[in-house]
Design a protein around this nucleic acid. Sequence first.
RNA 1: GAGCCGUUAGCUCAGCUUGGUAGAGCAACUGCCUUUUAAGCAGUGGGUCGCAGGUUCGAAUCCUGCACGGCUCACCA
Length: 486
Amino acid sequence: MENELIELRKRKVEELRKIGINPYSNDFKPDNDAEKLLSYYGKLTGEELKKETKEFSLAGRVVALRDFGKSLFFHMLDRTGRIQGYVRRDIVGEENLKFFKKYIDIGDFIGIKGSLFKTKTGELTINVSEFKLVTKTLCPLPEKWHGLRDVEIRYRQRYLDLISNHEVKEIFIRRSEIIKAIRDFLDKRDFIEVETPILHPIAGGATAQPFVTYHNTLDMDLYLRIAPELYLKRLLVGGIERVYEIGRTFRNEGVSTQHNPEFTMVELYQAYATYDDFMLLIEELVCSVAENVFNKLQFNYQDLNIDMKPPWKRINIVESLKAAHGDEIFQNDEILFSRAQSLGIAHKGIRGKAVIELFEHTIGKDIADPAFVFGFPIDVSPLARRNDSNPDITDRFELFIAGREIANAFSELNDPVDQRQRFIDQLEIKARGEDEYHAMDEDYISALEHGMPPAAGAGIGVDRLVMLLTNSPSIREVIFFPHLRP
RNA sequence: GAGCCGUUAGCUCAGCUUGGUAGAGCAACUGCCUUUUAAGCAGUGGGUCGCAGGUUCGAAUCCUGCACGGCUCACCA
């Protein structure tokens, strides 16, 4: 049985049709929006407004209604904001006022026309001369004062969240601006934006579990990409020397406040650059985004104050671990593994894994201001260039802010023989049951055999960057439709 | 995958400890009110208390299982 509130509104729709009014018309063209009127005319005094007789038309959703008998006030919400309207009998006439009261509910879309005035309390208000029902709404909106709190409804019916909770819309507008700022930054530096496949025959470019899908005609399994990396580097081989892609990546891993199965990454590659160059590039990129979108470099993230003013700190993984845990942890693998074990850190018997996990759990988590972490072990960096003076580590860094990894970057491995051996080493780990380790990719090696220029590349977690800059505690606050059970 | 917490009217929440046939505000409906803005005043309707079992004379309340969600941990970015 349906709710009485909906039944009532359905009856109104029928009645409207009977009297010849289309409750879902599409012939109203607003010539203005709330923000324009508020910013331009909001500054004028009531007296000044009286001289302004011009009429404006607006369209939007009614979000509040106050009936005074012979007049009424309402607030309407359009793409730009909220504005108040005033309907009075001696202007619109008795019949029209009656119609408004009887047929227009909170939630409906209306189009209005009218002049501007200021109320006693100083709010810029449209004195409505004409109005039109544009779209009838059947379901009532969430409560006006507390808004919508139930997180399950907020995520499943995000449209209600957007209507009720003003700050939610703000966050998503910021998200859009952040992505635009990233694009602007890279475009100005002659990077070319590209699109590479999402369906991959081999899931490569990262250490993660893929989603598997199936192509009927080809009769083969395909994987949703876990990273665009290997395709972007094929483009380096092809001579696209500065290239980037902003797009969705999919990882079949746990869901949490930091993880969504599909998330947005920007990956960029630049020929003849090194990971050192990329520290500066990433620093400039993030600062430029922060300044262009937020006009500042100081941010509060939850309990932390984050100062992004360059130059950013650089932290050597091995040196910082020695300082924190003593030199002896690197004497041999047994000591390292047992130390990791005692801290409850999974190392899976992989030396590099133990090192970076130990770092993340004991040092990385406390990094507040941006810092570049470098000295990544070779066995957890199968696509990164080997360091020239220390063959055990790679020319790779990660950017940590607020205890979280925001970006990962390295000088690219372009030696096809070394790359093949790295894949073989990965396969050994994979054979031990660690499924997420890298697969052999002959096609990629073949590309390297044709010559890839030396280059540096980086991947930036866009969702996490947006979280950080908008002070959002959960990734679900920056993704419109986060993954939930159906 | 594990632990803890939550699910009551369209929305926001009480009620559960101590079992006795469900309550407020907003929204809705009927009146009154021509500068209100969480408008106000008077009145009315609205609920299989997440689902399924159990205990009991009697369950929103106690117990068990399940579903969905949140937080923490693990995997991961």
